[in-house]
Nucleic acid binder design. Sequence first.
DNA 1: TTTAGCACTCATCTCTTTCGAGTGCCAACA
DNA 2: TGTTGGCACTCGAAAGAGATGAGTGCTAAA
Lengths: 348, 348
Amino acid sequence: MRFDDRKKRILSAIVETYIRTGEPVGSKTLSEFPEISVSPATVRNEMAALFEMGLLEQPHTSAGRVPSHLGYRAYIDSLMRVKPLTEDEKDGIDALFNISDPDPDKLLADSAEALAEYTGCATVAMTTTPSYVTVEHIDIVPADATTVVLLVIASNGVVKSKVCRLGFRVNTGIADFFRKFAKDRFCGHTLKDISAEFVNAVSIQLGEYSGVFNPLIVGIYELCKEVYDGQYYLGGQEKLLTYNEYSDRALEIMKLISKRDKLGPVIGNNPSGVTVFIGKENSLSQLSGSSLLVARFNIGENDCGTIGLIGPVRMDYSRLIPHLEYFAEKLGTLLSITYQRKTGDENG
Amino acid sequence: MRFDDRKKRILSAIVETYIRTGEPVGSKTLSEFPEISVSPATVRNEMAALFEMGLLEQPHTSAGRVPSHLGYRAYIDSLMRVKPLTEDEKDGIDALFNISDPDPDKLLADSAEALAEYTGCATVAMTTTPSYVTVEHIDIVPADATTVVLLVIASNGVVKSKVCRLGFRVNTGIADFFRKFAKDRFCGHTLKDISAEFVNAVSIQLGEYSGVFNPLIVGIYELCKEVYDGQYYLGGQEKLLTYNEYSDRALEIMKLISKRDKLGPVIGNNPSGVTVFIGKENSLSQLSGSSLLVARFNIGENDCGTIGLIGPVRMDYSRLIPHLEYFAEKLGTLLSITYQRKTGDENG
DNA sequence: TTTAGCACTCATCTCTTTCGAGTGCCAACA
DNA sequence: TGTTGGCACTCGAAAGAGATGAGTGCTAAA
């Protein structure tokens, strides 16, 4: 059976109509489409063929047809006409990022929220840190009689700080000693290396002072871990409630996507551009009723991150895919600037 | 009509049964309660009286009775027997706080999440900063050729830091100059004073360097604002979905409580202990189907915060109120320790 | 004051009927 | 050979009709 041009037009029309209305599409409706304009009976013959080919499904005998997962896949891969973004739409997304001097930590979380608001889907945003990233700089800044600020800078330019309150008074001598000690022990090591065991071993080297300095050592460990773990934020989970597809499954999906160890691996290993997982294509069975659009973005030359949309299988792919792509590109650019090591200035 | 002892026992039984089952309570069920043990007909007479008094409502003629808002109020204010926490329950809550060296910023957010998990309600946690709190200390720490860490310490002990990436190389001289400048201009002022206008005025004093240093000035402003605004976190919003009372209102409530400017004033101005807003007692009309349990806690001597539960009117007050009270007390204690200025050591 | 009795109400459940959108298939037609 | 009109058929959704039963209000007697 040939997947000829008219079959393609009919499949496209079914997908697009079903996305728009949420109702199974019948032969009469389709026959009225100008790009089809054959009788309902002919459409029915074609639909029967598309059903045979596994591209359509039938909720029940006397209902119209809905796209199967294969049908969506064929539509997305080759039939869909992606509408390029209008200048207005681009401006709309640009406006979301129109923040002066964004806080790198908040930018990703805010982006997830903004994207959810913009698309009406739940979103997830994540960054990962390559395993070769090292600790480049460690500092300890006395802020107060017994308070210090710990500072870790990683070789990918990420800076994290943490306030530590200590049980003793920190004078310059103590701070200088610890700073040198910490630099010697941590700098140059990859973040991956800095495990709980590593930290224990370092702590032991402090001998009798081990107990006193332990909060600081642990603090450094936590900062390194935070940098290495990267970020994981959700946005607009409540958007799922607006789709009646989720009437009773929303809670389950919300719980699932909040777990980085579940969703992280799925969205983290994808090529550049937008990857689409339609319904049952998702490796997580709970997502079989949802589609996942994932876009990877690059931060600087080495790091990368992922931002994804979660919504019903019946989502407007032709609109969302280009929007997500543009959004991810913008986000990557902005994060790159934010994290940029201005190494060119080093010698200036 | 006297609100006599038997009426009180019947109202209590209705409230407790309705909370447990979610079904209107009928005279036959009540007559079987050992503490009532009169015939259904007698119970009906009493129920008619309680209805007259506005303490009960009737979903429809042939259904049992449910408590009215007044009924809940009477129950909570004078009838309810609060079950003091068992040692096991106390241990359970203590365990939630069993974190070594908690990060003060994360503690509140984590607490909101833990409380939601523990109670099955949506939660909100907030802190406010008194208007007399001042900027006590400002520091700028070069971390990298063009990166500095800004540090603001407020007089209530809150420390906030922010990484600033600059377009120029920061040497010791520049850092020293700006540190002194910022200290002179900001320290001693209340956080409340540090408005956008204030910051503009300060910026102008930098004359030709105003543009160069502006990101830092703005950074300080943002840090001060962050400290002054305090924190606002939600937890377990998805818990609302587990109550069928919220089948279609969940989205609306979630949107509402995410807005600090809406919910903040309601929960922020309450006396110590647990305050209960039942259904229509809430000033926000969208919460008329929900109850709000709010507990204030003190951080140190001056600051205070609020943690609240949001759930259906039909919530287990006699269990939740003492639990929330104990939770808030623990949270306050832990935050007090975390934020404690060890001023006793200053001269040591 | 309490209680048994009784007629009444009304949401809920189940069963049936009706309705109609949509189908599959066949025969006729271009 | 592909297209179309015709027609019987299917089946979910909506509407209607009882039947059920939990619960009520009221009255009169204990």
